[in-house]
Design a protein around this nucleic acid. Structure first.
Length: 598
RNA sequence: GAGGGCGUAGCGAAGCUGGUUAUCGCGACGGCCUGUCACGCCGUAGAUCGCGGGUUCGAGUCCCGUCGCUCUCGCCA
């Protein structure tokens, strides 16, 4: 057979059923397994749609049997044959096509496959580095096929829903002006203008705001975003957002639009019923109660502020923290069969707390009749009943304490909360708990830089009651900001935007951009705002992160076809790589290699 | 920039307080097998134990350094 001529499939490997008995078919696919029983071969042929068993019996021509002998795993083949209903006792209920098999009349090898670096199965056990190097093989696995399909279905459902709601999908450039705030930019040197650079967008933020000025009052885009920062399990330097913006809306409109979207999408893609409306928590409540601004509400385990009680004790570690304006918080670790709170285990919890800056994790055990035992019990004498009351503790529970600055205290105990939930098996599988975090502070003081900066970005609207005190008390200003949280991950972030030139300039000034620099950096936005900008706001859910959670993965790499590793390298194509001097010359670039530290 | 974990055959792992020829499963290769579906059975090959140095009569094992991967903190509006 010539290279370009082969028997093209008439059916896929996932579609044949008992009712197809007797049909002449052609399958194209990969050899998933080849079981040779001497006189008879069973070849599992796999494609994207499923696996079909092909039988090469002894009545078949010798030439066909010898091809069956030669087949190896992952050979790409074409099979011609007749669909045959399997004898009753041979039906495989675990296979979708298990009622039938294809009795082969001819076999063709379309391409051969070398011995594999790892086995292709539902989920491979090969290390991630190797999976990325041979990503084309890894992608053949059942798990990757399912996740990439889920991702497609998710994005398709989003497009359908938003289109039906009157949104336009509009593309924005990926070569844009570098703007100074936020993450580090990826830069693209200009050939035509020596020394000038484009930046890859960290998000289409300013462009979508300008689309609003342009009159496209409902916009969305499945947008690739680039941030040159270190990767994490849930973070890649290149990722995809559903970028969305609307004109003439309030915060409420944006939240309802998202709730409507995800209700629809989860129902159609996951067959999962979400509540019509998601819980809402203020940022301060989320921090105080769960120790993070992205709480996992699939379980409870609240943090309790015990500063008032701690103040009355003689415990020096508590007193000194309180005296310097810090916080003392406690969490109740419930008595359970599943876990004994040994010193060793409490040590593990303490390690989790220390990651976020706690200096230690104090503990007491709740005994009979409101008695506290071990740990710091002796410092709490006289305050047992009050402590047990506020923490709602019972006999056998452990109380765990962190004393630190408010933020470290929250984050540290939040980490303890998360570890406890995992170890106590409190996290239900297959549930999706969305919640909104609202009322974020607009500004954060940057100690290193010595000035205020935007907690999210500089284009978010301050809540109206703070407009008069922006400059005098930036720290207390709350913004019209909102995050969407799912199962403990931040999956979207948005705000109502500023659409007033003067207000926008005031924000720039507070963030240490004088009018001249603001003009130079953001002049195009300020110019646009001189021409009748509509009030507007939006949000940007992270596609990769959401699909990761929906497919119950803990790494974003599991839902990206070609991800980078933690060192920002793609092991498959070995990027980034050096380029020719000629290319550098054209771009007017000279490479300065960093000096190696001795 | 910092910390934790890992690195033993193509892949995944075992190898305890240092002791002869480094073990197991999958895969590869050869053989047998007519109803399997993670087929089974027999056999063969395949490892400078990440790399470099040190301690020791002797190092996969202990020490120092280094490289790679991975998770996390910082960073990520």
């Amino acid at each position: 057979m010539a290279f370009m001529e082969y028997k093209q499939r008439t059916v896929t490997c996932g579609q044949l059923r008992g009712s197809d008995e007797g049909k002449q078919v052609v399958l194209n696919g990969w050899v998933h397994r080849n079981r040779n029983h001497g006189g008879i071969h069973f070849i599992n042929v796999r494609d994207r749609y499923g696996i079909t068993q092909v039988v090469v019996g002894e009545q078949v021509a010798e030439s066909v049997r010898s091809i069956a002998e030669a087949l190896r795993i992952e050979f790409c083949i074409a099979v011609e044959g007749t669909v045959r209903r399997r004898p009753e006792s041979m039906v495989n209920p675990d296979m979708e096509t298990g009622e039938i098999e294809v009795d082969a009349s001819s076999l063709h090898i379309l391409s051969r496959c070398e011995p594999l670096p790892f086995m292709i199965d539902e989920e491979t056990d090969a290390k991630e580095d190797l999976r990325l190097r041979y990503r084309y093989l890894d992608l053949r696995s059942g798990g990757m096929q399912k996740r990439i399909r889920l991702r497609h279905e998710f994005v398709r459902a989003i497009r359908e829903h938003l289109s039906a709601k009157g949104f336009y999908e509009i593309e924005t450039p990926t070569l844009i002006k570098s703007t100074p705030e936020g993450a580090r930019d990826f830069l693209v040197p200009s050939r035509l203008y020596p020394g000038k650079f484009y930046a890859l967008p960290q998000s289409p933020q300013l462009l979508k705001q300008i689309l609003m000025v342009g009159g496209f009052d409902k916009y969305f885009q499945i947008a690739r975003c680039y941030r040159d920062e270190d990767a994490r399990g849930d973070r890649q330097l290149e990722f995809t957002q559903l970028d969305l913006e609307m004109s003439f809306v309030s915060r409420e409109d944006v939240l309802l639009t998202m709730e409507d979207l995800f209700n629809d999408v989860f129902a159609s893609v996951m067959n999962y019923k979400l509540p019509a409306h998601f819980k809402r928590l203020s940022w301060i409540d989320a921090m105080n109660t769960y120790g993070v601004d992205k709480p996992d509400l699939r379980y409870d385990l609240p943090l309790v502020d015990v500063g008032d009680i701690a103040k009355k004790t003689q415990f020096g570690a508590f007193q000194s923290v309180l005296a310097s304006g810090g916080s003392v918080k406690a969490i109740k670790a419930p008595a359970t069969e599943a876990l004994s709170y040994s010193r060793k285990y409490i040590g593990e919890l303490e390690e989790a707390a220390k990651v976020y800056g706690a200096t230690g994790l104090a503990f007491v055990k709740v005994g009979k009749d409101n008695i506290l035992e071990t740990g710091i019990a002796k410092f709490l004498v006289g305050h047992e009943a009050e402590l047990i009351s506020v923490t709602e503790a019972h006999e056998g529970d452990m109380l765990l304490f962190v004393a630190a600055s408010w933020k470290k205290c929250c984050n540290s105990l939040g980490a303890v909360r998360a570890k406890l939930a995992r170890d106590l098996n409190l996290i239900p599988k297959g549930t999706f708990e969305f919640c909104w975090i609202i009322d974020f502070p607009l500004f954060e003081f940057n100690e290193d830089a010595g000035h205020w900066e935007a907690a999210h970005h500089m284009f978010s609207m301050p809540q109206s009651q703070y407009i008069d005190t922006l400059e005098s008390d930036p720290g207390s200003v709350k913004g019209d900001l909102y995050d969407l949280v799912l199962n403990g991950y931040e999956v979207a972030s948005g705000s109502i935007r500023i659409h007033d030139v003067e207000l926008q300039k005031r924000i720039f000034r507070i963030c240490n951009f004088d009018d001249e620099e603001a003009e130079q950096r953001f002049g195009f936005l300020l110019n646009a705002f001189r021409y009748g900008p509509p009030p507007h706001g939006g949000i940007a859910p992270g596609i990769d992160r959401m699909v990761m959670i929906m497919s119950e993965q803990t790494s974003i790499k599991e839902v990206i076809a070609f991800p980078k590793n933690t060192a920002a390298i793609s092991p498959m194509d070995d990027s980034p790589s050096f380029v020719d001097d000629k290319q550098l010359d054209e771009l007017h670039l000279i490479i300065k290699q960093p000096e190696k530290n001795s």
